[in-house]
């Protein structure tokens, strides 16, 4: 099985003025995927479209297993149209062929039976943890958004939401909800707590400063050229030196990252 393949767009749905959900079906069988892994995407014939030049990395939001209609399954990405590359992807019609590399990187580590898992997402970071939400059904999910309009629907009976403007859930930071949950949990549970999180850089820095009573793993995002560890462009400073987000990550232990000022 090859991690270099083409896939065709099945649906490309606008969710709000920035977010969109892209579903593609690969033209070959793809390698097994893990929550937290990512794919590099680009449209157009190779060599023909040179601006933007590079592929864009996106977390896998979900993989729907092969069936009669889609013999190689469906890959779903939730994307925030922040720049040129993502805005081009947003406008692509159904049927467009994409060039893809993936799955890439290391996903979230497995959770042991005697560990408690909590999931935290900020904004479009929900994309990276949707797979976890599906896999660890019923695990508490802490989800922070700017406002109601940006919230992606996710099935979880144990969800706690916060929004910057208070239009949905608590007004303020979702991390306050997370912290409160941990202190409540600690009254009856002294074992290991793991938090798997994906969100903006500021959220991670805040989590680092909070010194949460848990093992926190976060999915990082950086500019990236190759995705496979050769360009050395996506370096991140860790306590054991520079590491590559594409190959050593994108999931890292929060305390291994040097967050700086």
């Amino acid at each position: 099985m090859n991690r270099l393949f083409t896939a065709d767009i099945v649906t490309n749905e606008q969710l709000d003025n920035r977010y969109f959900a892209l579903q593609v079906t690969p033209n070959v069988a793809i390698c097994e995927t893990l929550a937290g892994q990512f794919f590099m995407l680009k449209s157009g014939e190779f060599g023909e479209y040179t601006d933007p030049l590079l592929l864009r990395p996106f977390s896998l939001a979900s993989f729907i297993h092969p069936d009669d209609t889609y013999p190689n399954g469906l890959l779903m990405f939730l994307i925030d149209a922040v720049g040129k590359g993502t805005n081009i992807l947003k406008r692509l019609p159904v049927g467009t062929r994409l060039n893809i590399i993936g799955p890439l990187g290391r996903g979230f580590p497995p959770v042991a039976d005697d560990e408690r898992l909590l999931i935290a997402a900020g904004g479009i970071g929900i994309a990276s943890v949707l797979g976890l939400n599906k896999m660890y059904h019923g695990v508490p999910l802490f989800y922070g958004v700017r406002s109601r309009g940006q919230m992606i629907e996710c099935t979880n009976s144990n969800i706690q939401v916060a929004s910057d403007d208070g239009s949905i859930g608590d007004k303020g930071s979702v991390l306050a909800l997370l912290e409160r949950h941990i202190s409540q949990l600690r009254q009856s549970y002294s074992g290991k707590i793991k938090i798997y999180a994906c969100g903006p850089h500021g959220m991670y820095k805040a989590m680092f400063k909070m010194n949460l009573d848990a093992d926190v793993y976060v999915a990082l995002e950086t500019p990236m050229a190759c995705g496979v560890g050769t360009c050395l462009g996506c370096a991140v400073e860790t306590t054991s030196g520079l590491q590559m987000v594409c190959k050593d990550g994108p999931v890292f232990n929060l305390k291994d990252i040097i967050w700086g000022g």
């Binding site: 040179t50 601006d51 933007p52 030049l53 590079l54 950086t222 500019p223 990236m224 050229a225 360009c231 050395l232 462009g233 996506c234 370096a235 991140v236 400073e237 520079l242």
Partner: peptide, 21 residues
């Protein structure tokens, strides 16, 4: 090599300052 950020995409190209890692 150099500290991050090490790469940046520009029109039809990319800048890199990996620093010979």
């Amino acid at each position: 090599g150099n500290l991050p950020g090490r790469i940046w995409e520009t029109p039809c190209g990319m800048l890199n300052a990996i620093g010979l890692q």
